[in-house]
Amino acid sequence: MTLLSPRVLINAALLLLLAALPFLTDMMGDSYYTGVTSRVLILAIAATSLNLLIGYGGMVSFGHAAYLGLGAYIVGIGAFHAIEDGIDWMLNGYYQLAATLILSALVALVIGAISLRTRGVYFIMITMAFAQMLYFTAVGIETYGGDDGLTIYSRSDMLGLIDLNDEKSLYYLIFFSFLAVLYLMHRLVGSRFGAVIRGSKSNEARMRAIGFSPYKYRLTAFIIAGTITGYAGFLMANLNDFVSPSMMHWTRSGDLIIMIVLGGIGNLFGPLYGTIAFMALEELLSSIPLTIGGLNVGEYWQIIFGPLLILVVLYARNGIDSFLPGTRERAK
């Protein structure tokens, strides 16, 4: 692969655009898009980590949004106690971050250890069931708002290193986090570990025959993906100033999978393209000012989105990636 293929240039141009975005929106005098793009990038972090499981590992985890919720609830609960009970250290962003990473890893360990003993549809159902358990747990805890969720009155305190209340600072924390996750994935997938993950998707029987026990490697991938998504949840809570159980609902996990499918499964940049496309379509379709027989089409935008997704799956198996010039980047 040449270094400057059209595909690489397009990817680079997209990253540059994202890097300059806060300044571009400044020029337009409207910072709305900085917030929207922050959200896109956070979801892209989650989707990119999920792509390790689905795209490279063939493990269709249908409960990935649970980790988003976990990270977000830790920020929310920390802020809640800091403000209600005056426990200041719970607002400390580093403590919150450490708690997020440790808790997401532990939860992923437990869910993965059990789910990975199953295959196919059973794996999908079990991961979804675990995520729904967490969802209903969040619904049930009245202290933290239950169904209504929890407004976060104070963002994580990063002790002066970075001010999360400043929109630009938060954006760049998110942007560079995304870049870091992208690079991490690139290294992971190409490493010995990545070879085992990809090989186990490609042909598990042969993997066992040549001496690999895929389980422990899959479990490790599961933990890595869960932890990264927990981190995305930490960012999401700081962006939204709000956390609610609906963040963990299974349909949110479904959204993440749709983003990966839209962007092109098993492709490093796929989840980013997919997330952008998903959010853009949601925005666009839901603002269609068309009313048919008293039914507002924009309100039921999924009616259009659904068939669109079916078309992608049927005719563009690699999603948006199919439309990029040059040969498809081989999983390496």
Binding site: G190, S191, R192, G194, A195, V196, M207, G211, K332
Partner: peptide, 14 residues
């Protein structure tokens, strides 16, 4: 690779 010890090596490109 399967016979060169464990594969918990995350960084170096094979």
């Amino acid at each position: 690779q399967a016979h060169q010890g464990h594969s918990f090596r995350f960084w170096r490109a094979t």
